[in-house]
């Protein structure tokens, strides 16, 4: 427990702002999903977002790379504001990697092709160089030997690690994770979390929606609790878990810790 919290403390956080969200609102039709979101993320921060189902966690992080459009307020990513301007959206998406709950690998491409696609087509990297980069990251997520297989031939944990490698190949400044382990069997969860811990250790700025509280305690330097579209509470992990302020957070924590 002690060395875990130490890891979080060790990791440096710079005071350079990577993401700034100001008074942001979002609606689905009449339904007010996100209400007055204010959030600043500095370079090197590891943020865990938790909250009950339907509270808007996915929607929030999907707004950061414009998979969802916000209707009010501002979102700045790495100094660029997200508007409906396609060029700015593309610029931001190049710097922001995303890992999905259901991996979303491209089943018709091999693992290697999955990883080289975006560097070649978006970053205009020569194919040979892209493959070299891809192999390096596949090595890092510990599946270099699967490069020529198709995603359908891999286990869930392996697929998710490929998905992480695929994002890393774009050399992003920020990584977004949307419940990366919740579609996995328990023994595969650890292999994916290990990769994520290492990523944090290397100083990646991460926002991670997850219910893996162990992971939150190990690597997060801030935990955010959302409910009904609002950020109810945010704090350092130790404070957050040991001394939750709002009754809703307490209730939520008591529920998930019961399991």
């Amino acid at each position: 427990m002690n060395d875990k919290t130490e890891l979080a403390a060790q990791l440096a956080v710079s005071d350079q702002q990577m993401i700034r969200i100001q008074q942001m609102h979002k609606w689905y039709g009449q339904f007010h999903v996100l209400k007055d979101i204010n959030l600043t993320v500095n370079a090197g921060e590891r943020i865990v977002v938790c909250g009950p189902s339907g509270s808007g966690k996915s929607t929030l992080i999907r707004c950061i790379n414009r998979l969802e459009e916000h209707q009010k307020g501002e979102i700045w990513v790495d100094g660029t504001e997200l508007t409906s301007d396609l060029k700015q959206i593309e610029q931001i998406r190049r710097e922001v990697g995303m890992v999905f709950q259901h991996f979303n690998l491209f089943p018709h491409l091999t693992v290697l092709e999955n990883c080289t696609l975006a560097p070649i087509w978006v970053r205009k990297m020569p194919k040979a160089e892209a493959e070299q980069v891809a192999r390096k990251y596949l090595e890092r997520v510990k599946i270099p030997e699967q490069a020529d297989k198709y995603p359908g031939q891999l286990s869930g944990g392996q697929q998710q690690r490929v998905a992480i490698a695929r994002s890393l190949c774009m050399n992003p400044k920020i990584m977004l994770f949307d419940e990366p382990t919740s579609a996995l069997d328990p023994e595969m969860i650890k292999e994916v979390l290990d990769v994520m811990v290492e990523l944090a250790r290397d100083g990646m700025t991460m926002i991670c929606v997850t219910h893996e509280m162990g992971f939150a305690k190990t690597v997060a330097n801030r935990v955010i609790f959302m409910d009904e579209g609002e950020i109810i509470e945010q704090n350092e992990p130790e404070e957050f878990f040991n001394n939750p302020q709002s009754p809703r957070t307490q209730e939520f924590l008591s529920q998930i810790l019961l399991h």
């Binding site: 998979l67 922001v96 978006v122």
Partner: peptide
């Protein structure tokens, strides 16, 4: 999820159609 993954990587509409969606 296929187009979302393509979007998230910064592929443009025609790229994601040609490389991801149409082949499948």
């Amino acid at each position: 999820g296929q187009t979302e993954a393509a979007d998230a990587m910064g592929l443009r509409y025609w790229q994601s159609m040609r490389l991801i969606v149409l082949p499948q």
